[in-house]
């Protein structure tokens, strides 16, 4: 019987799932929108992956990563729950053994990971704001009335990208509106936007980091050809974008679930379990923590967000 491992990467915008075998080969994968509800998204993901999984195998490990990793980890009974930095590094290293720099731009996070001899030695993540990430691109695409999927192609058509303030997306947006109103071509504006994402990333997240080749670019935004073009142009270096670049986190966490020795046979029945969360403001002291209670089949299984034990009563 074949042995399989499931990796789930639940981001703010999209949810990714892969099933790998013992040789780290992707058997099947799925990429769907999170749409603000990770529980529903993961249930849908699991249902479809389960249908696609070969019938001759058994699932021995589940790993979760991404911003909803704790919630989904609990829901699926995962044996590995890890942060996305480590997961992305492990996933990328499985395909590109000599990688030095990983550029990653996701929905609300952007990060840079520096790897030396196969070990993560440094990383940096966007700090307080989500400037220059995928969610900004998506909202601007909507504003301009262009499907986000066509965004990159359109940017490539531009011969003269407009200059857009790269420091802060709030300024970038007002710049953008201004440029549109005085009559610049749509593709030039889009190209300018892609370039501003690159400059913003390098000025904030990439500040002070030594970007050495080989460079791998991943995360949802790596599928945007416009952003890729300007990364190549600004860094003056070849940049690798894997076909599975959007799945690297999920692949990485699946590999970690495989390496973890706590194997058990998973049935993937989470779709039948009623999983609920209730958020409330605790009023037992003046901290007023935002407490999130997690119920599995109406039974309280965990409480998050409380700073003291009173919140979990």
């Amino acid at each position: 019987m074949n042995e399989y491992y499931l990796g789930v990467d639940i981001g703010s915008i999209s949810t990714k799932g892969v099933i790998i075998d013992n040789n780290n080969q992707v058997i099947t994968s799925l990429y769907i929108w999170t749409e603000g509800n990770p529980i529903v998204a993961v249930k849908k993901l699991i249902r479809e992956l389960k249908a696609k999984m070969p019938k001759d195998g058994k699932l021995l490990g589940i790993g979760t990563t991404g911003s909803a990793r704790k919630l989904i980890g609990l829901m699926l009974g995962a044996n590995v729950v890890k942060n996305e930095i480590t997961a992305h590094a492990v996933g990328t290293l499985s395909k590109h053994k000599d990688v030095h720099t990983i550029l990653e731009i996701g929905g609300q996070d952007s990060k840079i990971i520096i790897i030396d001899n196969g070990v993560v030695v440094d990383y940096s993540m966007n700090t307080l704001c989500a400037a220059g990430t995928g969610s900004f691109l998506t909202s601007q695409a909507k504003r301009l009335g262009i499907p986000i999927e066509d965004f990159g192609e359109l940017a490539l058509k531009s011969k003269n990208p407009v200059k857009i303030a790269a420091r802060c997306t709030v300024f970038a947006e007002s710049d953008l509106i201004h440029k549109a109103q005085i009559g610049y071509l749509k593709e030039d504006i889009i190209a300018g936007l892609c370039k501003s994402i690159v400059l913003n990333y390098l000025n904030n997240v990439g500040k002070g980091k030594k970007i050495r080749e080989p460079i791998v670019f991943q995360g949802g935004v790596s599928k945007n050809k416009g952003v890729l073009k300007y990364f190549k142009e600004v860094l003056d270096a070849p940049i690798i974008v894997d076909d599975d670049s959007h799945l690297m986190g999920a692949i990485g966490i699946a590999i970690m679930a495989k390496k973890n020795k706590n194997h058990q046979i998973f049935e993937l029945d989470a779709t039948d379990v009623l999983f609920e969360t209730k958020g409330s403001e605790c009023s037992k002291c003046s901290n007023n923590c935002e407490v999130l209670k997690i119920y599995k089949d109406h039974e309280l299984v965990d409480t998050w967000g409380n700073r003291c034990p009173k919140g979990s009563e």
Partner: peptide, 26 residues
């Protein structure tokens, strides 16, 4: 780590976990 008045600790936790992974590996 730059801390502002943020209620959610998730971001801080992700950064700390990743950092600890790095020094453990090193």
């Amino acid at each position: 780590l730059v801390i502002d008045d943020l209620d959610s600790l998730a971001g801080v936790e992700t950064r700390l976990e990743s950092f600890v992974d790095i020094i453990e590996n090193a």
